[in-house]
Amino acid sequence: MTQPSLTERRKAATQLDIARAAAALFAEHGPDGTTAEAIARRAGVALRTFYRYFRSKQDAVGPLLSGGAERWRALLEAAEPGPLHPTLEAAVREALAAPDAATAEQLKWTRGLLRAAERDPALRAVWYRVNQDSEERLLPVLTRLAGPDADPLEVRLAAAAATDAIRVALEAWAGTDAPAAGPHSPAELAVRCLRELTGGMRLLSR
């Protein structure tokens, strides 16, 4: 996999700084009480820089919401072709586990944003778009893992089910006060959702 250039890494770091500033202000004042100008000030960037990367204040939190999916996809990209179900489960567990402070912090931001999204249609639309993008980017990864003889429709269904498993698990967890690790953690809920959604799929039973 090609490593991002220095410019791309700086761009991603700036976007993440803006995303964290937006999430913090949403937590303090709610999306309705937050402006793009306030987010730019909190992030220490010019307003034109904000709009170079994001169309709206809700869009600004996209990098935070997509972090877990990116970790999961990276784990799958590094996996060897073979039986899909154990590979998917292992990647889900590792991607949504909270072994360090950075991952735990990201899950905390995700919980707050998903709670805010219940009352903000624009923020909810960003969450759905992040998941749609994740599913589309996951498809070629699963196609490689499943091998050349796999039915493309079954691979597409697997990508959709796996993405929805993580989405539903995070939404369910965000509605509770359960910790980031343990029986009701995002990782455990996602594995449960994955098993329920893929139980009848031939591709994942091989």
Rank of each mutant, 00 (worst) to 15 (best):
A181S: 15
L138S: 05
G44K: 09
V191E: 05
A19P: 00
D164G: 14
L16M: 13
E8N: 07
S56Q: 09
E89S: 10
M1Q: 12
A165W: 00
A36N: 06
Y128G: 09
R111F: 11
S56I: 11
A21H: 00
A150G: 04
L64W: 01
A40R: 01
K108D: 11
A158H: 04
A60V: 12
P121A: 14
G62V: 02
T34D: 05
L157A: 11
W127V: 07
G68S: 12
K57E: 10
V155W: 00
E105I: 00
P63W: 04
L189P: 00
P4T: 05
D151R: 13
A78C: 11
D164R: 12
L194E: 09
T2E: 14
V130H: 01
A78L: 10
V92G: 03
A38T: 06
A98T: 06
A27L: 04
A117C: 11
S5Y: 08
K57D: 06
A69P: 00
T110M: 04
D177F: 03
L142E: 05
V45H: 03
R52A: 14
R206E: 14
G112E: 04
Q132H: 10
R73E: 11
I39Y: 02
V126R: 00
L88A: 10
A19C: 06
A117P: 10
L157S: 06
V61E: 06
G112V: 10
L142A: 01
A19T: 05
P4N: 10
V126K: 00
E135D: 05
L16K: 05
A74W: 09
A159S: 15
